[in-house]
Design a protein around this nucleic acid. Structure first.
Lengths: 227, 227
DNA sequence: CCAAAAGTGTTATCGCTACACCCATGC
DNA sequence: GCATGGGTGTAGCGATAACACTTTTGG
């Protein structure tokens, strides 16, 4: 009789001010060393994997994400959870962190954004899961317009550009980047401007996901490369 | 108490004579409609996911693959297996079908290569899994040198070219294709020639995976695009 | 000498890269 | 008027795409 548990875990990325963040929780446990961990938990018998992650995220962190996809199933290390054989189906999610109201809820003690470059040692194999998700984010940014899911609905071109620089850890030529993105015709000017403290006011832009989906069906490929 | 079973399934592709094949089995079941299915089965408590697929493949089909990677975990359809809640971690594998000696073994009644374009209605959600794997193969061909894992160690340039045409379902310019591949410097001439029935004898080539791995570390990107 | 597949180069076009100056605002 | 970020065009280069004839063998 098989005795393997099935869990889901979510790597939720957020972005603010030239920094990529990941959402971590610290579980309530009496008198045990408390590690930070990815939000997640066991799947219920009558619940899809996707529903399970969504539920856990809601329960543990109170967030609803903009984008989510299955990342990888971690089940080759038999001792990844020291108590039982548990395999984890990990998900990769993106959120506009500016409009998010995180709060610890039923299951979790603390919820907090950590800069991806400064995450502590996590519970289980969650550091590995996070690294896998980070790699996925880096590569996905270059061939799908997922960066927009990390930004507010209306954003500055410079924010988009900085998001790419920050996450990909590369320099980008501002002019070429702008030209490239605009050539896709999936980002639209608004007639609004950001309230800025200094410098020339910057126009706000909006991603037209409807248009993108239409173009995608016709074979259009989003692609950003760098020198 | 959670009651979910964990299975693994493998989509094993082979290639011969301008046709892409997938390896299917038909289970022994008395007096029940016999569907063809992907090789696979339940994971053992003390076995990694990877070991489980490898074992099942060996038991059910007697093959050892050239390339294998995790594909996707299917667990959103609660009724994908009508008997129990089972989630399946699907794997994607490539093999040189010419040197393979498939045979039904302990667990399976029949084992057979089916052209991917002519697979029947399969058990469970295996048609979906197969389609997912096929998509992965198509895209992976264009950015990783996985095509070589479907060919014999020594192969004709025309075979490689036909493999790309067949799987990607596109026309390719022979001269440009050859130039591109050779420019990568990961495929080497041998001094051997194929025994052919007709036409000018064709030189055999070999993929140098060692060289590829070295180049990859230095940031080299394999990439094949088409008009 | 004919059939069959292998092998081979050149040109035009397109897209990417590199690069520097002016603009609008707040103080 | 100065500091701060926003916004813009062009020229050179390298990569891709299009394209057809010659070579080698067997029959």
């Amino acid at each position: 009789m098989q005795d393997i548990k099935v869990a889901v875990d979510a790597v939720v990325f957020g972005y603010r001010q030239n920094t990529l963040y990941v959402l971590l929780i610290q579980q309530k446990f009496a008198g045990q060393k408390a590690y930070w961990a990815l939000p997640g938990g066991l799947v219920k018998d009558n619940e899809s994997l996707m529903d399970a992650v969504t539920r856990e995220l809601k329960e543990e962190t109170n967030v609803e994400v903009n984008y989510m996809e299955q990342l990888y199933t971690f089940g080759d290390d038999l001792k990844r959870d020291s108590r039982n054989r548990v395999i984890s189906v990990a998900y990769f999610a993106l959120i506009d962190s500016s409009k998010t109201n995180i709060k610890a809820d039923t299951d979790a003690d603390k919820v907090q954004w950590f800069p991806v470059k400064e995450v502590p040692h996590l519970a289980f194999d969650h550091n590995l899961i996070l690294q896998t998700a980070f790699k996925r984010l880096k590569s996905k940014l270059t061939y799908k317009p997922v960066g927009f899911d990390l930004l507010p609905k209306e954003f500055l071109f410079s924010d988009l550009e900085n998001l790419y620089c920050t996450i990909l850890e590369k320099e980008i030529d501002r002019r070429n980047f702008r030209k490239k993105i605009l050539s896709f015709d999936i980002v639209e000017e608004t007639d609004r401007f950001a309230e800025k403290k200094t410098g020339r006011p910057a126009r706000l832009f909006r991603f037209n996901s409807h248009k993108y989906k239409a173009l995608e069906k016709e074979g259009f490929l989003f692609e950003i490369k760098f020198a």
